[in-house]
Write a protein that binds this DNA or RNA. Structure first.
Lengths: 226, 226
DNA sequence: CGGAACGTTGAGGAGAATCAATTATAGTGG
DNA sequence: CCACTATAATTGATTCTCCTCAACGTTCCG
């Protein structure tokens, strides 16, 4: 179920801060993230954005659109991105031919929901420093799991403004929060890299329990990376 | 795919504020909600709760546990509740025998994720009155869709404290917010009933777009109610 | 060298939390 | 049927995060 599904589709590149799925848009394909970082997001009436989930290389970014072609959400590139646009028709054929793949896709949607649920908690019941630390913890384990870094240091090319949209804060407050985390020698963040100085402290201050990542479940990832 | 799947399992009743799935627990069944209101939730380090999704009669409340038996979330009863505990083994057999059912379950997980994503936005990027109004809008349409009420008046037996846990506010602030909504003749809430006086205003103040409910998608609901 | 994107810092204000009582409401048993 | 109790709702006063507004600094790249 891992590496090679032999998915065919159109390779595309997306510039940072471009919405590759607009809210309410009807899409006919899902996007396998080959490189870069993407975010699922929603908006409030004032145009304020809230990123609700990150997707990294290897993730099938809007697999859910297969079940709901008219999306109630949007997908944006956070970094320069390369994606493989896989037509829904092809994915449909796969799921019909191989029930195991259908199940893996379903499992992926459940894992997605688990992350989303944790984000509701993060944004609803945690203060700023905890929110930011929690995001760093989550991404540390996800990048580590994907073989794209480790929990002590991993590539995270995201602006403070986008980090603010992910944590439900303002970029100004995120900036101040990052300063505190840096001064306490817990984690050092700058555009592109997260450097964790004290993982134990980060987990503690981030109120982090990795259970929601469902890392023990089999094969939520669609593709590997060379 | 609707009404009668002929699901077999154990009927159980659950008292309000009882966790019928604890965080991190391993479960061997999913719970079809026959009557009452349930909530998926997470907790922060101080024990503060955040409800991340509501489930109403007819919903398969923890279907996702089939894909992730060791949950990273909890499920609590918000009202006196009647559930049908359907063993995972039985659900597995169903999905193996009928791919259409597997797909419906998958679609249900996607719909779930869509609601969760919207809740991240609600809690992360909206002020108190908008958050509360948004919840009232969502539940209005869901109860209406389920045939358990209509958007003008529906049963919603939830305490202000639980509403606070759903909106990421304190019960005190929820109380004050409800007062404002009442004084503006938009919506009147008391334990058990929501009475909408001005649906248009409620939608406007709640910054509500029903797209995320995926109501146009087919058959997300597992069972109907007499 | 100049502009654009991103980050940093300060001052003041607003929304929501906290602390602390007090008042309904509903269910229970005598 | 009513006192009793527990749960839920309401209100006030105060505090504190985080937001807003505003300006300035830094880095990178054409």
């Amino acid at each position: 179920m891992a590496a090679v599904l032999g998915l065919e589709g159109e390779i595309a590149t997306v510039a940072p801060h471009v919405d590759f799925v607009r809210i309410g848009e009807q899409v006919g394909h899902s996007s396998l993230l080959i490189d870069g970082l993407a975010g699922r997001f929603g908006q409030n009436g004032d145009g304020g954005r809230q990123i609700t989930c990150f997707y990294i290389a290897g993730d099938m970014a809007d697999l859910m659109s297969l079940m709901s072609p008219t999306t109630g959400w949007g997908m944006m590139a956070l970094t320069p991105m390369t994606i493989l646009k896989v037509p829904h028709a092809e994915l449909r054929q796969l799921t019909l031919a191989y029930p195991g793949i259908a199940e893996a896709f379903w499992r992926d949607s459940v894992a997605d929901g688990s992350i989303l649920s944790e984000w509701v908690v993060n944004v609803g019941r945690r203060d700023s420093i905890t929110r930011v630390a929690h995001v760093f913890c989550e991404m540390a384990l996800r990048f580590e799991q994907a073989g794209l870094g480790d929990r002590i240091s991993y590539p995270f090319y995201i602006t403070q403004a986008d980090l603010a949209d992910a944590t439900g804060l303002t970029s100004i407050h995120v900036n101040r929060t990052l300063k505190v985390l840096r001064e306490r020698s817990i984690v050092d963040f700058r555009l592109g890299v997260v450097r964790v100085h004290d993982w134990t402290k980060l987990v503690a201050i981030g109120d982090f329990d990795p259970a929601f990542l469902l890392l023990n479940a089999q094969a939520p990832r669609i593709a590997e990376r060379g």
